[in-house]
Every structure is written in C-alpha cells, then in structure tokens.
Nucleic acid binder design. Sequence first.
DNA 1: ATTAAAATATGATATTTATCATAATAAAAG
DNA 2: CTTTTATTATGATAAATATCATATTTTAAT
Lengths: 226, 226
Amino acid sequence: MSKCEQCIVREFSSLKALTKQELVQLSDCKTSHIVKKGEIIFKEGDTVNGIYCIKDGVCKLIKLSANGKDHIVKLVTKGELLGQRSMISEEPVNLSAVALDDMQVCFIPKSEVMGYFDKNNKFSMNVMKTICGDLKEADDQMVNLAQKTVKERLAETLLYLHDTFGTNGDASLKVQLSRDDLASMIGTATESCIRLLSDFKKLGLIELSGKKIILLDLSKLKKLAE
Amino acid sequence: MSKCEQCIVREFSSLKALTKQELVQLSDCKTSHIVKKGEIIFKEGDTVNGIYCIKDGVCKLIKLSANGKDHIVKLVTKGELLGQRSMISEEPVNLSAVALDDMQVCFIPKSEVMGYFDKNNKFSMNVMKTICGDLKEADDQMVNLAQKTVKERLAETLLYLHDTFGTNGDASLKVQLSRDDLASMIGTATESCIRLLSDFKKLGLIELSGKKIILLDLSKLKKLAE
DNA sequence: ATTAAAATATGATATTTATCATAATAAAAG
DNA sequence: CTTTTATTATGATAAATATCATATTTTAAT
C-alpha cells in the first residue's frame, strides 16, 4: 500500500494541512483503487461513506435531469477531492462521478475525515474554502448558461479545457471529451455542438482530427467567448 | 440596540449554535440597519468585512454578466445570513445584494464571526452545511438552465416563490417581483417572460392583477415544470 | 390633477437552437 | 479482415426564444 506521506498529489488538496502523524494514520485506513475509463465512481443518490482523493486521471461530475439527458456540472482532476459536500451535509451525493480517463483514486472513510474536521482547524478551513470556490464557480456558470449563447459557451469551454488541463505534444487538448460530453458540458444538443465546432474549424479557430481538438487562435476564441 | 438573545430570527440560521455568552457579546458588536426597497446592501467586488443577518424582508443576489444584463442567482430572506462565502474565501463578494422589500438587517463584523469559527464547532459546521446546501441548489439550477425550456423554468419559479415565501390574504405571491426580475431569475428576455405569463393566464393557470400574481392551478403548473 | 416616466403587454419578425433524417467516418467485435 | 456498432458530420426543417416596434397601463413627479 502506498504511503500518503509520500504522495505528492496530497499537496494540492485540503489534505495538505494534515500533520505527519495524521498522514501515517491515513495511510493505514485508506484504500487505493483503479478506475477504468467510463467506469462509475459513485452515482447520484449513493451514500458514499467517505471522500475520494484523485491521484491520477480526470472524471466528470454529472447530474441527470428530468428529461433523461445529463449535464456535466464539473470536471475534477488529480489533487482534488470528491464527495466532500455530501459528507458534510450528511446526505447522499447529488452528482455522479464517471471516469474520463483511467484513474487512480484513494478512498478515505468518513470516520477518519471527520476526525480531522474536529481536530485540525486548518484542514476544515481548507475544505470550506474549496467548497466556497465551487459555489462561486457554480454561480458563474449559472450566469453563463442563462445569458450567453451556445457559441460563446463553446468558445469559453474550449479555452477552459485548454487552460485547466493543458495540451499534448501535438497541441491538442489533453482532456478528450466526446462531442456528446462537450455538448452536455455547455448545455446544448450534440448536433449543435458538432455544427459549431465545424464552424470554428472553417473560421480557422480550431483544428479537428478525430477526437482531437487543437486550439489555433486563442485570442479570437477569447473574443468569441466575450 | 436590540438584543440578539431575544431575536427569534437567529434560530433559523447558523447563529442558533451560539451560546448565551456569545450572544451577549454579539449584541454589543453588531449594528442594525434599515434597508429600503431597491437599495443595495453590497455590490459585486465589494470587500464586506463581516456578515449580514436578515431580520426582515427579502433581497436578491445578482450577478452582472458580460453583456450588461444581470442574473438573479438567489433570493434570500429573514433568518438567513449574507456574505459567508466571501468571508471564508477571504475574497470580495461575487454577488450584489439588493433589497426587494424594506428590510431590517444586522451587520456582524468579521473579527467576531471568525471567533465563533475557532471556538464553536457547531457554528462552523452549521455554516458549512448552509454553504453545501447552496452548492447543491446551484447545481440543480445549473441543470435546469441547461436543459429546461423557459416555460418549464417559469412554472418552476412560480411554484418556488409560492412554496418558499408563501401568499398574501388574497392568495397572491408574497414576494412581488417585477417582470424584469422574474425574467432575470429564469434567464430569459423580459418580453418572453411577460408573454409566457399571459399564456399561463389564458390557460387559467394563474391570475394577474398589476404586479400581483395568483397561482390558480398548482398541479397543472407542476406538470408544466416537469 | 396633470404630465412625465417607467412598467407591462402584444404584434411582427429575426435569430438561435433543437429535432429529425441520413451520410460519412471511426471504433469495436467477431 | 470484415462486419457491426457507435460516433461524428451535415442538411432540412421545426420550434423556441430574442429583438424591435409600439401600444397600453401603472406609477411617480411636478
């Protein structure tokens, strides 16, 4: 079993506040898991008795709507924690988590995490700040969905993927979303998403080859995203 | 100066966790304010060095979008606290708060609140749960904006106003929003909102008289909201 | 009370976006 | 390697929504 004390990823999450002693204890009670691309980590409505720490890979947090389509609320990647909100609220999770890559995740049982909450003030403050950050982002996204056009949202999302997850050697976006996923991230029909990508390609803003997307003109995309 | 120990409203917020001693101390450092309808409590970008406790009235939390229109992210009413996120994140507020009614609010300086955070575990847990609740709601709204039609969102919002803020003696919604505000709550153009209200009226779902809105057929509205 | 200003309402039209249909391409399975 | 299936792409059309114009009503101000 790998040791949390030596895990670099920890430094990027609220867990960075843990003491050496707490980390040793954590190593003993955590479990490590491999999650293959497409597999579900947890499902809306599940009772998840703890939190997941993402060691590698990216997953989508999705919410099913009344009409059966689902919406991608957020992408989460290595260094981040999953299931904090649910644990604090003492409610089932309100989102499903599905791997977009092959992932490595560690599960930390609730009992352990709650202990840190009580004893380690810095840890609980970190978690709170993270959740506050999520809330702020959610507010922003809400306004975008309410007021921006699909074209603007697509441009913005492409830039977000570029800036947040970076590019491969060939300049293509590292996170490879299907057109379907991209559409459910910006809140539109798959065909509309595909059509706009074609438009962007014709305008020389992006290059498409298979699932790969290369952003060619960042500044024009920024203007389009307003 | 009114005493917090005797304030009923406190029982409805995170402040219910405070001890008698803490409440006495709170009474000494809080300031009470009257905010007239339409007045601004704080503005996006402001540094608010504390939190507001709403004793009476309702306000809207709005966010300005790039195109100049603003979006109502949330309505907040008596018993609730304002500015918690900003205080925890140690960032300027990301939303503006504008009174929809004449309001009574109390301001509690940051130094005081942070003291409770450190010493009163129940209080900080309450605040966390509130923010987690806000995040869950934000996720829901996001999906609604992404996937529901304007008609569905209008029906849902009318029901929300009905269920959350109640009705007057004549069965009209207690919170009176302008058509403009209603539109910026559901994320549509003012004219579209007005048009749909007229449609609902013609269908016998609601009654309109001036600014007053009366919901006549809750179950049909529920079906419309899906 | 009268005028001015703002809010509400409705029609006409343009634009955006979704849906349905079908083709082309890519990926997976046998 | 070939067949099947899923994904991506594009056209045609329908539906939803925004915008512009203008009328009506309500509210506020003089």
